[in-house]
Structures are given as structure tokens and as C-alpha cells.
């Protein structure tokens, strides 16, 4: 089985760990060997959070520089920061809505121009899927569902051996029933957006 390495990056509070966990659970349902690495503790206080899912039978759970098959960024500047994980062969899926770091608000750094960020990424990797996950999450009924919109986009990207249905099944297992409607809608909106 081909090894597939998927890296998720985002900002503390964006639900990064739920996405990687749902992908991991979906792999378990699909009978695909899987390892997931997560970040807990100090790094979660508004800092950068990275997790990774390795599918297909490798024993490692972390991904070295240049070795991600898919990079999923929940925030565009964080996608760019994590580009060291990418090679020419990588598919990048990114949210385009910025979460301006506080350092910018206090004048310690400049937030890059989103359009330039996307152009830079696009020319370096195999494929870039960019979507406004924040808008889609709001449309689905909760600003908190950005992480699930991104999972929907991943399902559509045809980069992993796991189906949208398997991901939805795993999603339901990990969420209380009252959250199913919003999150399944967020998933579908992400899936549709990635087609464009």
C-alpha cells in the first residue's frame, strides 16, 4: 500500500486535532493502517498547532521536511509557514481567511498579502486548492466548523484512499448528535468548494 502523509496546520482553537483524529478514525474504518501525531500543552495557547496523519503502514507518525503528500492549512500564513513540509509532489489545501497574529496588531511583523501567498504556493507544488473555509463554516451554521470544511475539501481532492462517506461516518462517531447537521453540511460545502 502506498504511504500517504497528510499534515494539518492551524492556530490553537481552530480544531486541528479533531480533523486529524477524524481522518485517523476514518482510516481505521476503512481498514487502512494509520498513525496520527498531535500537539498538546503549551503550544495550544493561541500558537501554531500541527498534527499529522500517516496512512498505509509506515510506523512513523510525524512527517519530515519535503515529505508531505498533502498539506492542509486552516490559515493562509500558517500554510505558507508549513511549506517546508512540501515538495513538488504535494497537494496543498488552504483556507484563505487570515487570522491576524497578535504580533501584527502590535506592529511586530507584517501580514503577507493573501493573493501573493496563494501565487507563491501555487507555483511551488503540484496543486493548490484554496477556499474560504470561514465563510463556508458560517454558511453551514457555525464559525467553529472550519476544520470540518477543510476535511470535506480533503475528501474531494482525491489524494487519500478514504471516501467522503467513511470520513462522514468517522465524523459522526466523534461528535455528539446535536452537532451532526451543521458539521455534515460544513463537510459537504468544503467538498463542493474544492471542485472549483
Amino acid at each position: 500500500m502506498d504511504i500517504k502523509r497528510i499534515v494539518f496546520v492551524g492556530v490553537g482553537g481552530q480544531g486541528n486535532l479533531l480533523s486529524s483524529r477524524v481522518l485517523g478514525e476514518a482510516a481505521l474504518l476503512a481498514g487502512i493502517p494509520v498513525n496520527v501525531s498531535e500537539v498538546h500543552g503549551m503550544a495550544q495557547r493561541g500558537g501554531v498547532v500541527e498534527s499529522a496523519v500517516v496512512l498505509g503502514g509506515a510506523l512513523s507518525s510525524i512527517v519530515s521536511k519535503g515529505e508531505a503528500d498533502v498539506l492542509i492549512g486552516f490559515e493562509p500564513s500558517e500554510t505558507l509557514r508549513a511549506m517546508e513540509k512540501c515538495s513538488r509532489e504535494t497537494t496543498v489545501i488552504t483556507n484563505v481567511t487570515p487570522l491576524i497574529p497578535f504580533t501584527v496588531a502590535v506592529g511586530k511583523g507584517v501580514y503577507p498579502n493573501i493573493k501573493e501567498v496563494l501565487n507563491l504556493i501555487r507555483k511551488k507544488v503540484k496543486r493548490l486548492i484554496a477556499l474560504n473555509a470561514d465563510a463556508l463554516a458560517e454558511k453551514a451554521g457555525s464559525a467553529m466548523a472550519v476544520n470540518i470544511v477543510m476535511l470535506g475539501a480533503l475528501a474531494q481532492s482525491n489524494t487519500i484512499p478514504i471516501t467522503a462517506d467513511q470520513l462522514k461516518e468517522a465524523l459522526k462517531e466523534n461528535l455528539s448528535q446535536k452537532l451532526w447537521d451543521i458539521n455534515l453540511k460544513a463537510f459537504d460545502l468544503g467538498y463542493e468548494a474544492a471542485k472549483k
Partner: peptide, 18 residues
């Protein structure tokens, strides 16, 4: 696998935990 060249990436604002 060769990691992409990042020499043309603009300096990114830090995002320390807060």
C-alpha cells in the same frame, strides 16, 4: 524528496502562544 525552495517567501509574522 526535495523540499520546496522557500527563499522567496516573505518574512512571516510570529505566532507565539499567548
Amino acid at each position: 524528496r526535495q523540499a520546496v525552495d522557500l527563499s522567496d517567501i516573505p518574512p512571516l509574522p510570529g505566532r507565539p502562544p499567548n
